[in-house]
Amino acid sequence: MTPTRQTAATNDGHHFDIAAYCARVGYSGDLAVSADMLRALQAAHIAAIPFEAIDVLVGDGVSLDPAVIEDKLVHRRRGGYCYEQNGLFSRALEYIGFAVEPRIARVLWGGVGDDQFQPRTHMVLLVEAAGEQWLVDVGFGSAVPTAPLRWTSEIAQDTRLGQYRLMPTSFGRRLELETDGGWRALYEVLLEVPQREDFEVSNWFTSTHPQSPFRRNLIVARATRDERIILSGSELTFRSVGHDTRKEKLDLAGLEIALREFFGLSVEPRWRSTLAQLVLRS
């Protein structure tokens, strides 16, 4: 079903161009609220819009203004990180008619011990569909779930690129990914309903603090139907459905080609000195 309106106001009061968004993610299916439609749109978004934080790496920072995000990810065909990705996806879902609630999560991915606390720096969505609540995330880089996950279920849930489960914690629910026969924690979603200012603070920290991983390294990722494509520094990784992994080390020219061919990102002149330094460090 093609939308009859080109734009409409979402819950934040900003107008949203649903036709341009659907064209950007390559979605031409029905826009009626359903779990199947949610699943299809999430897969299309993740495959089309890469996870990236190049603006953070080069010191430009990240704006949470809805119009700026839409212009960057939709019209300028850039990628973004969690606040941008899930912010954009939330507005698309609200336009369609889904009930959406944002949540803040504490990232655990990266080998942090159980007795150590990372800042609350990740944004996810809780979405109502088919009489159930679903955890939806299009902005967690190399391990992003490729389908909605039943929020209240503790059993393993299959997606085309891995099994996930949600386990109860003292503060909310912990998302885990099955890897090598065990379960690895991605993040803990907090039950507390956040305010807009909470995301402003966590985005400011993530985009400016020297200890933010995005200030120190190039991280770009995209999940297609059959594989995850991950660029970390100057190393390009392809991880298939069957968990076969192939890695390539890139020079500066190869890095620019990979950004363009695998992630749809044309290297801007102001990026080049930062990318060159990154290759020299690798």
Rank of each mutant, 00 (worst) to 15 (best):
L166T: 05
L166Q: 10
R76Q: 13
Y164E: 03
D17H: 13
L278Y: 04
R39A: 15
V279Y: 04
D12G: 06
G113W: 01
M37S: 13
E176W: 08
L255Y: 03
S28D: 13
E94D: 12
V241K: 15
D226H: 14
H122G: 11
R39P: 00
G139W: 02
G139R: 08
G113R: 14
Q42M: 12
P50Y: 03
S212M: 10
Q118L: 14
T4P: 01
L218H: 01
P213R: 09
I230P: 00
Q133H: 11
R173W: 07
V62A: 06
Q6P: 00
H243L: 13
S63D: 06
E200R: 11
Y95N: 01
E227R: 15
T206A: 15
V62Y: 01
Q6F: 07
W183S: 09
G59I: 07
G87S: 12
S142E: 10
D180V: 10
A156D: 10
A129E: 04
W151C: 08
I18S: 08
A53P: 00
A19F: 00
L41N: 04
D198Y: 00
M37C: 13
M123F: 08
M37E: 04
R246N: 05
G111I: 11
S63E: 05
L126H: 09
L31E: 00
S273R: 14
S170L: 14
W271S: 03
A9Y: 06
S34A: 15
